[in-house]
Simulated assay, not measured.
Amino acid sequence: MKFEFIKVHGSGNDFLLIDELSGNELFTEEERAKAARFLCDRDHGPGADGILFILKNRHADAVMRVFNADGSEASMCGNGLRCAGRYVCEKLGKDSAVIETKKADLLVQKFQDINEGVTTYNVEISPVLFNLGALPLNLPQETLFNEKITDLSEELLFTAVAVPNPHLIAIVGENELQGSLQKELSEKINKPNNLFPDGVNVSFVKPLAEGHIYVRTFERGVGFTNACGTAMSASSLVTCLNGLNKINQAITVYNDGGMVQCIVKNLDDSYKIELIGNATFLYSATGEVDFAMGTATFTDVHDFGEQELYANLQKKAKEFIAVHE
């Protein structure tokens, strides 16, 4: 099977974007999961954290379905949504679009460049859910805010929130970041376990300065990634709830792939978050998957020439982190 794709990334969180807007779906449900496993293999295929399938929709401008590298389907992906939103907006000749995700229809808007020459989009992250049943997290209580989970750590305080992807967040210092605890507990609760039956994204958050945080995420279905959009959004919210940052003010979030900005909005009885960051197109190519052989190849690569400009943003982000370590 042959098809066209675009390699894209948001904060270094990279994806293969496949256009099925014509209404002629290229893959069966079973093939989508297999294609993700084969194509996202960095040793034998083009490699990526996941695949963004862009499909036709009757009430929104498009549908985005996200399949992780292990073949599982994600409820949402903030970094992927920026890239999908850019693709749809440019294809339709618009500055904004409504994209249907698994749990909600979300607004995507072109935004002023976060750094010179870096194409930037603002996406809505919602709904925000604190009830543990939304993750799910099996504890004998309704919510978890700055509390210990002794099966995971005797010292760390965790907050659980779904946006709508499930997230477990701890505010930490440099020692916790440098140690192995995040990897160990993340792997534990993303294997069969009693606490998180569906797994969970685990983020360690280090405050750098007022309005500036660093977030590292072990992403369910992927492992450690350069960045996770919903994790950075949820982490920004948690820092606001802890009084470290302010509602309605931009928070710069640094990650291993660069940086984004998040603005936490307080609604009448809930929250929503604006995630602002790059939507970088790396290259287009022709892909081919042999499902019988379990192989994936790609040819006819055309580089968009955007990564060099994004590298300037990465340099700026690394310099800020180095000063505030």
Rank of each mutant, 00 (worst) to 15 (best):
D300Y: 09
T295I: 07
K265E: 07
K272G: 03
G305S: 05
V264P: 02
D268R: 10
E306L: 09
A250I: 01
A250P: 15
Q314H: 03
T299N: 14
I247V: 14
Y271P: 01
H302N: 11
V260A: 15
D268P: 02
G243W: 10
M259C: 15
F298V: 00
L282C: 14
E274A: 02
Y254K: 01
G258F: 10
D269N: 14
G257Y: 06
I263K: 12
A292E: 14
V260N: 13
D300L: 11
Y283A: 13
I273H: 05
E308W: 00
E306V: 01
F281R: 15
D300H: 14
I273S: 01
D303K: 06
A285C: 07
A296S: 11
M293F: 00
D300I: 01
T299L: 05
A279T: 11
A292G: 15
L313I: 05
T297D: 09
T299M: 02
N312S: 13
V289Y: 06
G287P: 12
A292F: 03
T252G: 06
L313T: 06
I263L: 08
Q249T: 15
A292D: 13
G277N: 04
E288L: 03
Y310T: 01
I273E: 02
T295E: 06
Y310A: 08
L313G: 04
E306N: 11
G257C: 06
F281S: 04
E288D: 11
E288P: 00
E308L: 08
Y283M: 07
T297G: 07
Y310L: 13
L313N: 01
Q249N: 12
V264G: 05
V260T: 12
G294P: 08
G243D: 10
L309N: 14
T297V: 12
T252L: 04
S270M: 04
A292H: 10
V253W: 03
C262D: 05
N248M: 05
N278L: 10
Q249E: 15
D300K: 13
Q314M: 10
D268W: 01
N245V: 01
V260L: 14
E306S: 09
Q314I: 02
I276L: 12
L267V: 06
L313Y: 09
T252M: 02
L267P: 01
N266I: 10
K246R: 15
I251Q: 05
N312W: 00
A296E: 09
N248T: 07
F298G: 08
T252E: 12
A285F: 10
I263W: 02
Y271F: 14
E274P: 00
G257P: 09
Y271A: 04
N312L: 12
G305F: 09
F298R: 01
G277H: 00
T299S: 14
G287E: 10
S284H: 09
Y254N: 07
A285T: 03
N312G: 13
F298C: 03
L275Y: 06
I276G: 02
L267M: 12
V264E: 04
I251R: 04
Q261N: 11
L313F: 05
K246S: 14
G257I: 08
Q307P: 00
G258W: 11
Q261R: 05
G305A: 03
T286M: 12
V289R: 04
K246I: 00
F291C: 08
N266Q: 15
D303Y: 13
T297F: 04
